[in-house]
Design a protein around this nucleic acid. Sequence first.
DNA 1: TTAGGGTTAG
Length: 629
Amino acid sequence: MIISPVPTIIANLPNPHSSSHDSNLRRVIISLLHKNRKNPKHVQSIHCHAIKTRTSQDPFVAFELLRVYCKVNYIDHAIKLFRCTQNPNVYLYTSLIDGFVSFGSYTDAINLFCQMVRKHVLADNYAVTAMLKACVLQRALGSGKEVHGLVLKSGLGLDRSIALKLVELYGKCGVLEDARKMFDGMPERDVVACTVMIGSCFDCGMVEEAIEVFNEMGTRDTVCWTMVIDGLVRNGEFNRGLEVFREMQVKGVEPNEVTFVCVLSACAQLGALELGRWIHAYMRKCGVEVNRFVAGALINMYSRCGDIDEAQALFDGVRVKDVSTYNSMIGGLALHGKSIEAVELFSEMLKERVRPNGITFVGVLNACSHGGLVDLGGEIFESMEMIHGIEPEVEHYGCMVDILGRVGRLEEAFDFIGRMGVEADDKMLCSLLSACKIHKNIGMGEKVAKLLSEHYRIDSGSFIMLSNFYASLGRWSYAAEVREKMEKGGIIKEPGCSSIEVNNAIHEFFSGDLRHPERKRIYKKLEELNYLTKFEGYLPATEVALHDIDDEQKELALAVHSERLAICYGLVSTEAYTTLRVGKNLRICDDCHAMIKLIAKITRRKIVVRDRNRFHHFENGECSCKDYW
DNA sequence: TTAGGGTTAG
């Protein structure tokens, strides 16, 4: 522990050698700690003085010191203080458990609670609540259940805070029945308890159950409404989340900054730029404080909705940037194919001494992958553990596989999977398979396809990738087999869907969609563009329309891909030269990519398409991804 | 004399 010089703040302390009473000294020290609780150096000096005056063993002083150290994130000092205390009492244990929790060391918190029980220090409600907090964050269902049993046996009684934490724990761990049982057993189910229960339902994906609890509530405050919006958005019900936000406004419930963060997330995921802009303006009007969450949400919304310049302007305006602010911006730049800028921002972040976390590396490595920066990507990956002490997780390995695969270093990517020490996931195999397809390496593709088809967890996107791979080789029977397996497994192909925002409304199109009221004008425009693009040299690449049908039919299937319909609607419903912004749920196909480049050239429009992986900015016959995605 | 509420991006 560093001993700092005694500052003037303790010059007026009672003299330890005088006859002043201990209680007086204790009171003064505690009061000093309160006054200086935000200044770690002063706290250390006070601690030194407490040691000298032998007050540091006083349970009340030790308790305050420990709490203050935890508050300023000096967890090492807190641990040392705890270890130096003879027979720490339940208060001391609880504060250190709480300290571990706020520091993110959940396992340490859980272990310390167990140690306390082993040492026969009787747990009280506060200690149990702190322990359960750690269990919730660590998703430690087993330990949580043990504590639940301990509480029942000890006769402590199910204190309200304990019951609330148990509802949360069971929800977060996916055992909604147990959460419900706890909730139903609570004598007082007020707005807070209901909010926790709603959160638990959403955590388990039980959207309608959550809404039912919400609808049965008497008074509903801002936090509760926000929980519902957040839950809907987390469960992919973005439009419904926005509807609840409108309803909340109609009912006159004031949104807070958390509400806005959730609403902005819905806009980001819908690609609803105009609505996002409106919300931003509304927030300014309400004087919402732009804290780090709000800043991150705004940067994320603008970049995900295609306006990377606005995201950058916002980022530049944030005075104190933390890791999440940088993460939002680096992720945004990567999404837009601005690879160099993303890597430069990463360097700037390190220079500013902001410590990166695992998410930062997903962003930077993604940027390297989109920009074909193989060597740099490799170096950054190596630095994760060596320099930054961050153990790579499966998504980081996935980025590396993607980086190597995209540039055609397929063997290396395959070996990498074998060496990496974590199990390959289906996304990683899919990315490699896609690389095999692009680089036309059939042998390697078959090896990967075999691994992928044997994978225990494979989603609809991976099935389609596999089926498309076989179809691209003309192996229709294999492709059909994959589709059959998919059907048997009850997995439904996610249909391609594109959306475009015109006059604050989101218009959605499926492939060959005929539902839109403007369908006549849309299809007329499409026909016109098909004609004009052929003059520009466009030849439909029939291999991507992967059904066992003849070429003419394939051409037809391609021609009505959802993104083309959305673009045509944009063209007929907006002023000349207006930028079109389209969102697509799946990856854009080669054929549409080639076609949209020409549409942008012919119509002199900027067309921004967000697909599942990234943004494509089409302008004057070219795309920002340089045909590399 | 020592303390704990429910909602926040990637």
